[in-house]
Amino acid sequence: MTGVRAALIATGIGLGLWGLWLMRDFTGGELLSIGTWIAGGILLHDVVLAPVTVALGVLAARLLPAHLRGALGVGFLIWATLTVAFVPVLSGQGGKPDNDTILNRPYVTSWLVLTAVLLAATVLAVLVRRAQARRAQARTVQSRTAQGGPTADAGP
């Protein structure tokens, strides 16, 4: 495996250097713009998007019972990742004023509908979860009563 790993690492470094070589005649202005975008992308993620997501996770962990967090997490993940993917069409930027064959759909309306649908699906999943959790709890209580108290739970 060491040989394979060394080959992968060497190949990767070679391809990366080839990419840098392709930029050898770029002007200083171009390189600055590229650098700004690359650094900006990392900072936008590491300093804004990720900490906000972590903070929401911490908040959810403090405020919500565990059995509801799975469904909420799934709903949030889908909503947030799709929203990031749709930022350009939602931004109102791009396209050309004399060309109505591009960006010609009601994207914001679609996004509101998408948000509402995901929210409804998440609430539904949470309600189902809660009902299941209550039933499970009721069953436990019932079986405990039937078997004559909590000691019977010790089981095999």
């Binding site: 394979v4 790993r5 080959a7 190949t11 990767g12 990366g16 080839w18």
Partner: peptide
């Protein structure tokens, strides 16, 4: 050009993490 850098860094990453 950056595509080559990205794919190169990805292959390095796979090599490191194999």
């Amino acid at each position: 050009a950056v595509a080559w850098v990205a794919i190169g860094a990805l292959i390095v990453h796979i090599g490191v993490k194999l």
